[in-house]
């Protein structure tokens, strides 16, 4: 009798859905745990009790300063960029139908990096450069590059084809990287170290201002993309099938990619080059909850957030009082887990 139950499509589907929701809940709990640990990590420790007191407004001034002005904004930012980059990557992989697509594919990381490098090289020392301005510059660079790629890939009578956009993106990113190599060799060592840290991905904006500038992007665009999950399912079937099913493919692709660029550019602007989350987050999600975007997109967002908050916490903790750039830690913990999943699951 159990055979009968499992062979009907509907109950299989709903079992899978239940399992997926269960996994989402587990990830969410893990994020909460990571959050508590992360708040406690740093040069000055806060016990859970102190933490609770401070949260309720009964802590000392010093505790409040540490919690509200240093740790919380940083933690919130790491959660936001993790979710943003992972969802952005999921959209890129879905629209381009290419496993290697990540937010960097539309030149976002490269453009942001080049602008940061240019800005740093303009000032006599790194201390003179207005670091505060860095995310704005990076955002402008990312946006301009994405726009340039779009224009270069546009053809008057055909519009935009994903494969053309993909190849154009690779070419432009390679060109920008070449320019960065030339600049790298000319920079003085001090400035180089600064830029290299930025490129390796460290969370820059650690004040509420950056949280506020990042929040609208994530809060609007992540739900928007999840709302489009059914469209993404259809697009995944291939362009011809999608047209056959009545989707306005070109327009949907454009809307989704624009959302992905917005998410990635705003995240990269405050985080530097944490590209790996955007590549691996969606793949992890797909392997955990399956390819349907209704589950896969929220799972990507949560996994991305979990990955970045964990990496940021470890990066702050291991080499105290100095820090390891978050991007490096993300790859070091994310890659082995991903490789393990890759080896374990059937494709």
């Amino acid at each position: 009798m159990s055979v009968q139950r499992t062979t009907t499509g509907m109950s299989y589907e709903s079992a899978r859905r239940r399992r997926g929701l269960g996994i989402l809940a587990v990830i969410f709990v893990l994020i909460v745990i990571a959050f508590i640990i992360s708040v406690n990590t740093g040069y000055i420790r806060l016990t859970p009790l102190q933490l609770l007191n401070t949260m309720l407004g009964k802590g000392t001034d010093k505790q409040e300063l540490i919690l509200f002005d240093f740790r919380l904004p940083r933690i919130v930012i790491s959660l936001l960029i993790g979710a943003g980059l992972a969802v952005s990557g999921a959209v890129m992989q879905g629209v381009f139908r290419n496993d290697l697509a990540d937010p960097g594919i539309l030149g976002i990381n490269a453009g942001a990096g080049l602008m940061v490098m240019l800005m740093v090289s303009f000032y006599p020392t790194t201390n003179a450069a207005p670091v505060y301005f860095l995310p704005v510059i990076a955002f402008v660079g990312a946006g301009l590059t994405a726009a340039l790629i779009y224009v270069l890939a546009y053809k008057r009578h055909e519009g935009i084809k994903p494969i053309r956009l993909l190849l154009t993106g690779v070419a432009v990113a390679a060109g920008i990287s070449a320019a960065m190599i030339v600049l790298t060799l000319r920079l003085d060592p001090d400035k180089y170290q600064f830029v290299a840290t930025w490129l390796a991905g460290s969370i820059w904006g650690t004040s509420w201002k950056f949280v506020l500038s990042l929040l609208p992007w994530i809060v609007i665009l992540v739900p928007y993309v999840i709302y489009k999950a059914r469209v993404m399912n259809v697009l995944n079937l291939g362009e011809q099938t999608a047209v056959g099913l009545g989707a306005n493919v070109n327009r949907e692709q454009f809307k989704l990619l624009a959302a992905a660029v917005g998410l990635a550019a705003s995240s990269v602007a405050v985080s530097g080059g944490i590209g790996f989350v955007g590549l691996v987050g969606p793949h992890l999600a797909r392997r955990l909850v399956g390819p349907k975007h209704q589950l896969m997109l929220p799972a990507s967002a949560l996994l991305g957030a979990l990955l970045v908050i964990t990496a940021d916490t470890i990066g702050r903790w291991i080499l105290q009082p100095s820090e390891i750039p978050t991007g490096i830690v993300v790859a070091v913990i994310g890659a082995p887990y991903f490789l393990y999943l890759l080896a374990r699951t059937k494709s």
């Binding site: 790996f276 590549l279 390891i324 750039p325 490096i328 790859a331 070091v332 890659a335």
Partner: peptide, 12 residues
């Protein structure tokens, strides 16, 4: 994934 891991280690 493995390239990203190695690059991150070299960067570090």
């Amino acid at each position: 994934a493995f390239s990203a891991l190695l690059s991150a280690l070299s960067e570090g």
